[in-house]
């Protein structure tokens, strides 16, 4: 059974006249990689900052382990944050940066732990290069090492692959998946959907400050799965023919005229020939496959139309 680690209820943030996040509602289960998808300016960072305790909500509540943050703010310290850019002193080395923060965290003899964290993210503890000379990827890695310093239960990563080169993206993906394997719950935002689809286990789609859908990876795969969309006069007359003569078993009846067939071994022409032989009229038949990107665009488009 998965337990809820964070629950967001009716969370709203207004900046003067602008509503950045409106009535956000969702739950995050322990151990999942929760992907927050949205265009630039959709409200992803604002939402993550509220969850991370950097900014205050205008209304609504965040619950950590069923306790409201307004009653017990100590839960914020169980989170590691990498929001927007990592906060680094340019004149420090990676090791010195962690050493300085280890003082704030009150860590006793932190040297071995710092070396372990730097190794974990792929940085060298003995490297004397100053942070100002780091590449974007190295800075992001150091940001993750910093976020892990307090041994958090939840890691919040806001656009961690922004500005990374292809190799950096692969390394970052590998690191996130490795961290998740240790039991860490990860909340990650991105507008690069393809990348997010490789790691997230649940998606929340945010558009113009509103969470328009929260969907598990399995449900999303089902929605985007390759299928044949068939439109006929009467589905109930066609299905026995398809079942008996083409061995179709994986399908979903949408309504009296539409059925979606998920059996990947079937081709459109086989269905058309079979139904023609049996004198069944085919109104339309379409092979359909949707990427996460298309799904997102369709969803935000319809949400935009609804909004308008």
């Amino acid at each position: 059974m998965t337990s809820t680690i964070i629950e967001v209820r009716q969370l709203t943030k207004k900046f003067k006249a602008k509503t950045a996040v409106y009535n956000a509602d969702f739950k995050i289960a322990r151990g999942e990689i929760f992907g927050l998808i949205g265009q630039n300016g959709a409200g992803k960072s604002t939402l993550l900052k509220m969850i991370g305790g950097l900014i205050h909500s205008t209304s609504g509540e965040i619950y950590f382990f069923d306790r409201s943050e307004s009653k017990d703010q100590s839960f914020f310290e169980r989170m590691g944050l990498l929001i927007e850019n990592p906060g680094l002193y340019p004149q420090y080395t990676a090791y010195k940066t962690l050493q300085l923060l280890a003082i704030a965290y009150g860590l006793k003899s932190p040297n071995q732990y710092i070396i372990h964290l730097l190794r974990l993210v792929g940085l060298d503890a003995s490297d004397k290069t100053k942070v100002k000379n780091y590449s974007m990827g190295m800075k992001q890695k150091l940001g993750i090492a910093i976020a892990l310093l307090g041994s958090p239960d939840v890691l919040i990563l806001d656009e961690p692959i922004n500005g990374l080169d292809p190799q950096g993206i692969v390394e970052m993906r590998k690191l996130i998946l490795e961290l998740n394997k240790t039991g860490l719950t990860i909340i990650i935002s991105s507008h690069i959907l393809e990348e997010l689809s490789k790691i997230a286990t649940t998606y929340a789609i945010i558009h113009k400050g509103k969470i328009i859908e929260v969907i598990s990876k399995d449900d999303l795969l089902l929605k985007c799965e390759e299928r044949i969309e068939l439109e006929v006069d009467h589905v109930e007359e066609v299905l026995p023919v398809l079942e008996q003569q083409l061995n179709i078993s994986n399908y979903r009846v949408i309504d009296q005229q539409n059925v979606h067939i998920y059996d990947s071994h079937i081709e459109n022409h086989q269905i058309v020939h079979l139904l023609a032989r049996n004198q069944k009229l085919v109104h339309s038949i379409v092979k359909y496959k949707m990427s996460l990107e298309q799904y997102f665009l369709e969803l935000t488009k319809s949400a935009g139309e609804l909004h308008a």
């Binding site: 310290e77 944050l81 002193y89 704030a104 965290y105 910093i146």
Partner: peptide, 18 residues
């Protein structure tokens, strides 16, 4: 501002009463 502008505070501000 050396701390504020670099965003370094984000690394520890979630600690209790930080």
């Amino acid at each position: 501002f050396s701390e504020y502008n670099s965003g370094f505070y984000k690394n520890y501000i979630t600690m209790k009463k930080a």
